[in-house]
């Protein structure tokens, strides 16, 4: 019983470490900002999620107290990762995007530019 739990927790920990590494490796390797965004937003979320789930299982089985803090952190990260990725992409496109977004930026009137970003 404990052996199976040990194996499961170890596998989940290794998966988490691997995906966090892949996310940061993609961040360092890929050639332009929009491609770089793909690495961290996906891989890191699953990586941290795995490590948090492993920690929850570890304290549940090892010490017998069920803690939901990790679950909350996981949910929080899954909810906020798309938002921060979207905000970063928007900032990049607004600053020096491709032709498409430049045309968009030109089309906006000054009043629209001054309106709060929702």
């Amino acid at each position: 019983m404990y052996l199976i739990a040990d194996i499961v927790i170890s596998i989940v920990l290794v998966i988490g470490g691997f995906f966090i590494f892949v996310g940061s490796f993609g961040l360092a390797k890929l050639p332009d900002t929009m491609r770089r965004l793909h690495g961290p937003t996906k891989a890191t979320t699953l990586g941290v999620g795995s490590i948090l789930i492993a920690s929850m299982l570890y304290f549940l089985i090892g010490q017998g107290n069920l803690s939901f803090h990790e679950l909350l952190v996981t949910i929080f990260l899954f909810l906020t990762a798309p938002v921060s990725a979207n905000v970063i992409a928007k900032a990049y496109l607004r600053k020096n995007g491709d032709g498409k977004s430049d045309a968009d930026a030109e089309r906006r009137t000054p009043a629209e530019k001054a309106a709060p970003v929702r």
Binding site: H38, T45, A81, P82, A85, N86, A89
Partner: peptide
Amino acid sequence: LAGTITMTPGTLTADYD
């Protein structure tokens, strides 16, 4: 939908028109 697209296969929502 935008959040889901960001989290799933190789796609990422950049802007909403």
